[in-house]
Design a protein around this nucleic acid. Structure first.
Lengths: 206, 206
DNA sequence: CAATCCGGCGTACAACTGTACACTTAACTA
DNA sequence: TAGTTAAGTGTACAGTTGTACGCCGGATTG
């Protein structure tokens, strides 16, 4: 059974999610979205909102999950491209920025709301970003002979730089964002090379 | 003339500023402060607020200026300590984290509101952070033979890492924040060494 | 077919928001 | 000392918010 009712419910649920995302602009963070405005944009009565979420916070957590999905897509795509093209840093940055701009609203949520909202919300976002760090750490552990702490420090540094650049690029004209991308690539090279050099030196000394 | 009236005015102005700062918590960003609540905490009638600021936004910009002052104090102190103790990275991190915790609310504003509010507000914060980057760039240009672009990329990387760690540390238990600090120091070393190595190589190739 | 379920609606209410306006009253000025 | 200035007050209003409650009507179930 298709469940005509269930289908309709899912449809308006999605409408709510999209309404919320569409209202996340540079000026308008999640914490000042109003249930009523979201409902209005979704085309439902304010009270109907409760048929789907008990809370704005619950909506928020759902949105964060959505982010997680997008991030994992991003990682898969980046990996595939790297396998084909090599050039890890360039490809990663290129892919990340592409995703950032294609899913601007989702990334706005992830990048901007990672601090300054409810604990549950913040934790959920941190979890997603940490997942990203952990994946990268594993990758580094496989591709090199770093110990775990070093790999993690390096991964965290990379992720921090990339996500910050992503947040900045969200509302920047194309020209400036190209410069920023180039700078980001240099910074990533700095930190990757630096980690390698320091690691090698420590090995020789040890 | 001392200006008894002017003195009193300045006093309540400060009361407003402090009230606003005291309401900036981990959960409660600037954009959801209310004029009335701020006025209440400052001990004045809501409408009296307008005798000092035309807007919440104007208050916000004032707070950002306050941040600028604090940041400059921070830089002075860091420089002095570095002159005495050497160990640039450790001293800087130590000093930055000290300031972060002593002026938690001011840094909360700076670190968390840097995206997700009004344009004027965001720009003001970016200006302060850029000032920081520029100072560091100048320092690097004096202490080394980097070209400007390289120095700037390096400075930006450093500032990004430090400020992000600062934002994270704001609401972290002491134990975890010590670990985070150590990781930050390693990351800074990575990027500094990496920049040096790459620069040297480029010079030899050139 | 009859009974039930349930997504969506409209009304209603209390709480809160920003701010316009007219006022008091203490400090300043001439 | 008389007149003016301006910080602070209280009242008032229109707008918004979240949400409790009861109802409708089509889908689902037996």
């Amino acid at each position: 059974m298709a469940g005509a009712r269930a289908i309709q419910k899912e449809k308006t649920r999605q409408a709510i999610i999209e309404a919320a995302l569409s209202q996340l602009t540079a000026e308008h963070g999640f914490s000042n979205l109003s249930l009523r405005e979201v409902a209005r944009e979704a085309g439902i009565a304010p009270t109907s909102f409760y048929r789907h979420f008990s809370d704005m916070e619950e909506l928020g957590l759902t949105l964060v999950d959505e982010c997680g999905v997008t991030l994992r897509q991003l990682m898969r795509k980046a990996r595939k491209r790297i396998e084909k093209k090599g050039s890890i840093i360039n490809t990663s940055v290129e892919t990340f920025m592409e995703f950032t701009q294609q899913n601007a609203n989702i990334f706005r949520l992830l990048l901007r709301e990672r601090s300054g909202t409810s604990t549950a919300f913040r934790d959920a976002i941190l979890r997603e970003i940490n997942h990203f760090k952990d994946e990268l750490t594993d990758y580094l552990l496989n591709e090199s002979d770093y110990d775990h702490d070093t790999a993690y420090a390096l991964a965290e540094g990379l992720v921090t730089l990339v996500f910050n650049a992503g947040a900045d690029v969200l509302d920047l004209p194309a020209k400036k964002s190209r410069l920023l991308k180039q700078r980001l690539i240099r910074q990533l090279q700095f930190i990757v090379i630096g980690a390698a050099v320091i690691h090698k030196k420590e090995q020789n000394d040890g």
